[in-house]
Write a protein that binds this DNA or RNA. Structure first.
Lengths: 187, 187
DNA sequence: CCTCACATGTAATGAGTTACATGATTGG
DNA sequence: CCAATCATGTAACTCATTACATGTGAGG
């Protein structure tokens, strides 16, 4: 079985108790955000499912005003299910990059736009690196977490170096390619 | 509109005419395979849609025995639609890594299994790099294609260096963590 | 005053995967 | 003789996203 939101919730709950809201935060802004995604519409039903399967338990904490927090904890059965799921994951990555597709056709894009897309991507990666740095401070120091953090840091700095080094060359080559294409059309 | 199979087909057809079968090969084994995925069940309907929208044309080439090849070509309207789609892509990457999730919980995995997962992943990345190298030879030499190829090469070699350098350290740390956890349980 | 953060959840919708169905030719 | 390659396509199904629905308290 491939990675799904249920397994993801189980994994997070194995580190600490959490509410659906907190899980979403971890997944969108926390240590997991760099290699995983999940929305409310997936997380809440997943937690409900885990509860009926008795892989987690839930306690409600009343609050004034806000709806009661539903804090989930993993059970022993959940720990076993997680270990099992982790072990049987096919372990293949899914990488979909709109940016690389755009770059593949860089010479078809108007020069102005290409530069804009490129710089926006650099900014995105830089933001991601900054966030990773931020997270590193209040992150559990398990060997796995450190490994993943270092992995992310290396990848991001490598990408950024490459992007910055190659920027002008790419823009230049694309300008030339567009020019020679125009000449061909004219002839 | 985010990246979908229709846009992907259009993009490939803008480089050269192709059949659905050929598009799938490009996407699973070719230059696009490193940052995109699509199955028959998505490609054939996408081509049919593009045809009714007149963004591509189709000619059948009869063959003895096999079903007729349906060779698709992009139209002028298709070129425009592609340029438009490429320009308006949000340009965000989707990266889902089961491997990194597994690594996040490396100390929970049996040592034997962790090593197996790790080495299998290295082998996978190595295969991917070899394939990229292979492709490079009969690849179009546009600035975009070269950029993407160099990008992929750099990322893969960087990952591989990291994975190989960190292997023994990770295994060691996880063994220690597992040991101290056992001691805690015993006390 | 308005927006953000907190906090839960559902329903409609979309997009693509998996598995099936069919069938000839070629190479080991 | 068996597996792989070529070649098209459909239907059932899974999975998750988006948008909606609801409501308070705090801070600028």
């Amino acid at each position: 079985m491939a990675l799904n939101v249920r397994t993801l919730c189980l994994a997070i709950l194995s580190m600490r108790d959490a509410t659906g809201y907190e899980i979403r935060k971890l997944v969108t802004e926390g240590a997991f955000s760099h290699f995983i995604a999940a929305s409310y519409g997936a997380i809440y039903p997943a937690l409900a499912q885990l509860l009926t399967d008795r892989l987690v338990t839930m306690r409600e904490e009343e609050q004034t005003g806000k709806p009661a927090r539903k804090v989930y904890s993993i059970t022993a059965a959940g720990q076993r299910a997680l270990a099992d799921a982790l072990a049987t994951l096919p372990g293949r990555d899914i990488y979909k990059s709109e940016f690389l597709l755009q770059m593949m056709f860089a010479d078809r894009l108007p020069a102005r736009q290409l530069a804009a897309i490129y710089d926006a991507y650099i900014a995105m990666q830089e933001a991601e690196l900054a966030q990773l740095q931020e997270e590193s401070r209040n992150m559990p120091q398990t060997p796995g977490a450190c490994f993943v953090r270092d992995y992310g840091r290396l990848m991001l700095t490598t990408v950024l170096d490459f992007l910055k080094a190659r920027r002008d060359r790419l823009l230049d080559e694309c300008a030339r390619a567009a020019q020679s294409e125009n000449e061909e059309e004219a002839s």
